[in-house]
Amino acid sequence: MSTEKKKAHPYKFILWVGLGSIIMLFAGLTSAYIVKKGQANWLDFELPVVFWYSTLVILLSSVTMQMALKKFKEREMGQYRGFITLTVILGLVFVVTQMMGFSALEANSIALTGPRSNSAGSFLLVIAGLHILHVLGGVIALAIIFLRAYSVKTKFYNALPVELASIYWHFVDILWIYLFVFLQFVG
């Protein structure tokens, strides 16, 4: 039993390995970005300021996620639901602010797609867009465990789903920090 405790739950382990493969997806894209940037015909542009706001939002959402996990373990189900809701809202705000960033660029006539586009802009769209999809995946996961909190069947407070969701949520947060720093200073 004592050795059992130290072992990670297999699901958690699957998640960690899965995060590794998500890292490889973005490593592939950002290294392609570096290669492409070193070649001719690259358009340098500033990231719209709204991306800073979205960075703040996702950082904040990690705090609320952590609070939700803490409250769950303390059996404060009311507060737990509140923090989960807050996290979901912040996740959606993050997505909206990113979209605003894309339209701000388009408004500045920096095309992200289409015949006038430069791959600098297209890369931003693809990289940030894929990250948005991963955030939305997290939102769906949170929505599912949120609904399960209302289910009468959940009597014996299994923290595993919440823990898995929070590991994933912090991961997409850190991933965005990396991408943001990369796009801001390398890009």
């Binding site: 490593a27 586009s117 297209s122 890369f123 693809v126």
Partner: peptide
């Protein structure tokens, strides 16, 4: 995943007029 990233860029070039 790296092949997937290459294919995503390919999808954009095919369908959204980008120039990767």
């Amino acid at each position: 995943p790296v092949l997937l990233s290459g294919m995503i860029l390919l999808i954009f070039d095919r369908n959204f007029g980008t120039s990767f």
